[in-house]
């Protein structure tokens, strides 16, 4: 059987809100390492990878590796019933066809059980090679969200270019064009407000803004976001989940015909 108890239950609620519009059904993999998920969107353009390490849970028991197929919309409906301060426990039996979500209020005066049917999902697991990226940009997550939203009112695609001068986000559409340049800025009070550009080589790649905007639904998970880029590799947009792991989005680039 498995049983995970997560004191900061809101993390799980935020993860679901971040991925449920991109991925419909997914297998959650449970092992002694932690609770993870890898899934592609229906167009096979983007890939989501989640890891919540076992050490981040108050209690984590997983007797044997278990794959739980879930409809993310239904899971989100259930997790929406948990309060933001609730402790969430996930329970399942080996070979069973249901998962139980238990929500406890912080004062222990309200305890709810929600049972959800599991599904058989045949999904392809992709091997993601470890890569050295030509450029990595770390910036405030809210700033990145604002840029993606602003640019998508003008164009459908964004060109992200990293040079010594900084990172440039450009778009073009019927009404005109836009360029937003963010320079490295480490002279801020809090490290999460910094913009840090690690450039080994300049890089310029084109991506669909529709996907970028979808990824920014993960903004409540983390103060900062990192963008890892190399020519001819998918972009990695990573939100770290404090003390537990990460939520990563991989996005295939667009190429000129």
């Amino acid at each position: 059987m498995l049983e995970f108890r997560l004191v900061q239950g809101s993390l799980l609620k935020k993860v679901m809100e971040a991925i449920k519009d991109l991925v419909t059904d997914a297998n959650f993999e449970c092992s002694s390492t932690g609770f993870s998920l890898q899934a592609m969107d229906s167009s096979h353009v983007a890939l989501v990878a989640l890891l919540l390490r076992s050490e981040g849970f108050e209690h984590y028991r997983c007797d044997r590796n278990l794959s739980m197929g879930m409809n993310l919309n239904n899971m989100s409906k259930m997790l929406k019933c948990a309060g933001n301060d609730d402790i969430i426990t996930i329970k399942a039996d080996d070979g069973g066809d249901i998962v139980t979500f238990m929500f406890e209020s912080p004062s222990q005066d309200k305890i709810s059980d929600f049972e959800m049917k599991l599904m058989d999902i045949s999904s392809e697991q992709l091997g993601i090679p470890e890569s050295e990226y030509q450029s990595i940009v770390r910036m405030p997550a809210a700033e990145f969200q604002r840029i993606c939203k602003d640019l998508s009112s003008i164009g459908d695609t964004v060109i992200i270019s990293v040079t010594k001068e900084g990172v440039k986000f450009s778009t073009r559409g019927d009404i005109g064009s836009a360029n937003i340049v963010c320079r490295q800025n480490t002279s801020v009070d809090k490290p999460e407000e910094a913009t840090v550009i690690e450039m080994k080589e300049p890089v310029s790649l084109t991506f669909a803004l529709r996907y970028m905007n979808s990824f920014t639904k993960a903004t409540p998970l983390s103060n900062s976001v990192s963008l890892s880029m190399s020519s001819d590799l998918p972009l990695v947009v990573e939100y770290k989940i404090a003390d537990m792991g990460y939520l990563r989005f991989y996005l295939a680039p667009k190429i000129e015909d």
Partner: peptide
Amino acid sequence: GDTQRSITEFFRVT
């Protein structure tokens, strides 16, 4: 115009 590439072109099925 641009062509959208697929993630499966970069990462292989395991």
